[in-house]
């Protein structure tokens, strides 16, 4: 288990409570020059939680144990909740008459900004668990940093999401350890999952002009600043799970953050967006 930072800092609860209202004044929303980068960065957050939430929800009713059905649905539900907040703020920043639903349901793949790792098919439970862990370790580090964002709105959303993601990371770390250090078969599957996913992990830490623009305003850390903490968490958990850190290149697969995706995303969107596309303008 990774040692998790103290969550009881006094302002987290308060920040989280304000996220639901979404009314705090945020000077960054008036910064016209920043708008495209800020919008893109918010879409990266919201699209990653949306697409991962979708993949996790595919397990509904099909998990290996009833407790897992409940936990997976709960995780997916949290991630969809985060999506509503991130894409809701993205729509406000963009100020072009769209809302979170229009962003989720009416953009095509090239406009999506999620990390590639979240759009890969769910695979078996080993891949689902391993991906969740690799993502959670990043997600947790990112949200923790965002608590001190110069954007009050971003800090509020992070505070609300971090409470849930702390639990996600605890759960996924725990499962990685138990399955890695379980039977020969569970160990083999976890190694295999790690090999498949590893080349997609580097994208989390690639800093581009969007990251630099929001980092310059103190809204978010540069992507590469999270790497050390992530590696530490991952190494500690994999070690306890009796799994080796892969030697393969971690950054072989990339492009999601700027809209260049795998073949999988198009099918996912075709499914997710079906009703909105088939019945334009209908209310549900």
């Amino acid at each position: 288990m990774p040692s998790l930072p103290d969550m009881n800092t006094p302002n987290v609860e308060e920040l989280a409570a304000r996220a639901a209202k979404g009314q705090s004044h945020d000077p960054h929303l008036e910064n016209v020059e920043l708008k495209p980068a800020f919008f893109d960065w918010l879409c990266r957050m919201g699209d990653s939680t949306l697409i991962l939430g979708h993949r996790v929800s595919e397990w509904c009713g099909k998990a290996p144990a009833l407790e897992e059905d409940i936990a997976l649905a709960n995780t997916a539900l949290d991630l969809i909740g985060h999506t509503q907040m991130w894409l809701g703020l993205a729509a406000e920043v963009e100020d072009a008459g769209r809302d979170a639903d229009r962003l989720a349901y009416l953009r095509d793949a090239m406009k999506f900004r999620n990390l590639l790792i979240v759009e890969l098919p769910k695979g078996d439970m080993a891949q689902t668990v391993m991906r969740q862990f690799l993502f959670d370790a990043w997600h947790h580090a990112m949200l923790t940093r965002l608590l001190s964002s110069t954007s009050p709105r971003v800090a509020e959303i992070a505070a609300k999401a971090l409470k849930e993601v702390t639990y996600h990371l605890e759960r996924s770390s725990d499962l990685v350890i138990r399955l890695g250090d379980g039977t020969e078969e569970s160990n083999r599957r976890m190694r295999h999952a790690l090999d498949i996913l590893w080349p997609y992990t580097g994208e989390m830490f690639m800093t581009d002009s969007v990251d630099e623009a929001v980092a310059a305003e103190g809204i978010a850390p540069r992507a590469d600043e999270l790497r050390t903490e992530w590696v530490e968490t991952v190494r500690e958990v994999l070690d306890e799970a009796t799994l080796d850190l892969p030697k393969a290149k971690a950054d072989a697969q990339k492009g999601g953050k700027s809209g260049r995706h795998t073949e999988h995303l198009g099918f996912l969107l075709a499914e997710m967006q079906f009703l909105q596309r088939a019945y334009p303008g209908a209310e549900w």
């Binding site: 949306l50 979708h54 929800s57 595919e58 509904c60 009713g61 099909k62 009833l66 059905d69 409940i70 649905a73 709960n74 997916a76 539900l77 969809i80 909740g81 999506t83 509503q84 894409l87 979170a100 639903d101 989720a104 349901y105 499914e271 997710m272 079906f274 009703l275 909105q276 209908a282 549900w284």
Partner: peptide, 29 residues
């Protein structure tokens, strides 16, 4: 869980998706 799980990935809005997920989770509970 299955007949409703059948529509979670196609729920028409984020809110509907969240509500349906919560409901199916209740059923597992």
């Amino acid at each position: 869980q299955l007949p409703e799980g059948n529509w979670i990935t196609r729920a028409p809005t984020l809110e509907r998706k969240a509500i349906l997920l919560a409901k199916v989770q209740d059923e597992a509970g």
